[in-house]
Design a protein around this nucleic acid. Structure first.
Length: 262
DNA sequence: GCAAAATGTCAAG
DNA sequence: TTGACCTTTTGCA
């Protein structure tokens, strides 16, 4: 499921498999039928991820996909399986297929409309030459809690509920602290960390935030991947205090009340 | 077999 | 601020 690393990984894979040649685009479910007709059989130039948005350019028409909470792509080598369920969009060439389901957004845009969406976003830690300065400018001037600011795509593009909780834990910062009460000595390592964690996420295809010394050796199973996310009531890996949860910015926030300070 | 939850966002009021 | 929306998986009976 999708935070920024998922979309960048998808862009990379789709470029490898589909870019620079024609793609058959269809919408077996029908909801994207009109859009599919516009780009069907055209050459796919490039797939780009910005934050949690995916843009596939076919000349002056771009397919814009946002996976929301539960959208997802599946894919594999040809031949494609018989369409099943609510299959919003399918891409096929002679070698590969990929299917999109569940996405709230799958639409054809012009270049200006795509630019408008990108312009609304804060810096993407996975972008080339990413800089956290614009994000820091907003955070250091805001009295909103840092746990809200990190989820705001205008502040940083690509962070979701898992990275939010885990980053704040890794830096010992209570989610309730107003942005303006962070010091730049806290922000600088946090920004460096989000770039590194998300890059690792792109590489492995999953989010792992525990340091090797804080988890059992060997393969990382789901129970050992996080410090706080979805661990409400379980003992903190560092101090054994029960992990707390409560909604913040409409999502369930998780934190350790001992390790994360105001 | 059904309800609830899940790594998200936007429009309506 | 609230509700709508998209689909699959999980947990409980």
């Amino acid at each position: 499921m999708p935070e920024g690393h998922t979309l960048h990984r998808l862009a990379k894979q789709q470029n490898e498999r589909f870019a620079d040649r024609p793609v058959r685009v269809s919408s077996p479910q029908g909801r994207f039928a009109a859009g599919a007709r516009i780009v069907d059989s055209r050459v796919l130039e490039r797939v780009t991820a910005t934050g949690k948005h995916l843009f596939a350019s076919f000349g002056d028409a771009l397919v814009h996909v946002h996976l929301g909470l539960y959208g997802g792509f599946t894919s594999g080598p040809s031949p494609a399986p018989e369409p099943r369920g609510a299959l919003r969009m399918r891409w096929e060439n002679d070698d590969w297929w990929t299917d999109l389901r569940g996405a709230p957004t799958c639409e054809v845009l012009g270049p200006d409309e795509a630019a408008t969406i990108r312009d609304r976003l804060g810096p993407d830690p996975l972008a080339r030459r990413a800089s956290g300065e614009a994000a820091w400018a907003r955070i250091s001037n805001s009295r909103a809690p840092i746990g809200v600011l990190l989820m705001d795509q205008r502040v940083v593009a690509g962070i979701g509920n898992v990275y939010r909780a885990e980053l704040l834990f890794r830096h010992g910062i209570a989610p309730f602290r107003p942005g303006r009460e962070l010091s730049s000595d806290e922000w600088t390592p946090l920004w460096r960390d989000v770039m590194a964690l998300m890059r690792a996420g792109v590489r492995s295809g999953r989010i792992i935030t525990t340091r090797p010394e804080d988890r059992p050796r060997g393969r990382v199973d789901r129970d050992d991947a996080f410090y706080v996310y979805q661990r409400a009531g379980l003992p903190c890996r560092i101090c054994s205090t029960p992990i707390r949860t409560e909604p913040m910015a409409d999502r369930n926030l998780f934190w350790c009340p001992t390790c994360q300070t105001m």
